[in-house]
Design a protein around this nucleic acid. Structure first.
Lengths: 152, 152
DNA sequence: TTCAATGTTGCAAGCAGTTCTCATTACGCT
DNA sequence: AGCGTAATGAGAACTGCTTGCAACATTGAA
């Protein structure tokens, strides 16, 4: 049995975060975030993919709103934006369980795997310290070709 | 048939590299590469910047040719392509003295510093191997704020 | 030196991803 | 319920880059 969660709810983290800023809760925003929540962290969707997943399940959202919402959710730290930069940026649910993961990307099909590595994180920290920079984030992107795409 | 040596210029690495592939030496290609050579390694130019530097010094080159030439020079390993992905890719002279450097970028002013770190390279290799991917390249981008921009 | 073959160029059109404009809709405070 | 204003949808515009094509230039051979 499915409990209707959208009928009368306590304010979600999303809703209260929005309110603090004079922003509003809309069905579109709710749907985008819950898509990522359903799908789990570690899955990377492009704006286009988010849009088609929502519209094909009957939602009525415009692509422009998807872009606006994704940007907002990144700013609110619900999502993480990845610059894999072959055919559009991708977004994932920001999981506080493994905050500093890196990405292995197949440049052909876009398949992405994550991994963690403390030395990489330390290398970023060391470099920032060395030049007197204040570190924000470091991301290692490994471009590669996945097994399925190698013989194509 | 022997060609008089007085007319012969020593073929540049670019020229001989092109010839091996049945490709041709053109003034445009020569100028793009020598721009990077004059400017030195460790400086990152966008295609647009290369174009305006050349045209403003009187050369007549189209932007399309710049893109084609940059891509070619990357393939020939004269240049390195950086995906810093804020408004277009950037290119730098590939120095074989430090082949695998990573970048520390000030997100405010765009200042970029390079550093090297073997552990980062190994982490990329290990991750690729682990998932059965064929490694192409790995780049660590550290986003940070430089000392000059911190108090702004 | 001439010439044909073919690689290269400039221009403009095209493309993908993203942002902007603006009329309309609809949150959410009272 | 009404109102002020944020948010949306639709499509045009923009950006960075690529491509199709006709004109052109380099190369190697005759």
């Amino acid at each position: 049995m499915i409990v209707p969660t959208s009928y009368r709810t306590h304010p979600s983290p999303l809703e209260s975060g929005l309110r603090l800023d004079g922003k509003r809760m809309t069905p579109q925003r709710k749907r985008v975030l819950s898509l990522f929540e359903e799908i789990g962290s570690g899955i990377h969707l492009s704006a286009e993919e988010v849009h088609s997943k929502l519209t094909s399940s009957g939602e009525r959202v415009s692509l422009a709103t998807i872009y606006r919402t994704l940007k907002l959710l990144v700013k609110m730290t619900f999502l993480n934006e990845l610059d894999l930069s072959e055919g559009g940026n991708r977004f994932e649910l920001l999981s506080h369980d493994h905050p500093d993961h890196h990405h292995l990307i197949c440049i052909r099909c876009g398949r992405t795997e994550e991994f963690e590595n403390n030395e990489v994180i330390n290398a970023g920290k060391a470099a920032a310290k060395n030049f007197g920079f204040k570190l924000l984030e470091s991301s290692l992107n490994v471009r590669a070709v996945c097994p399925l795409c190698i013989n194509k």
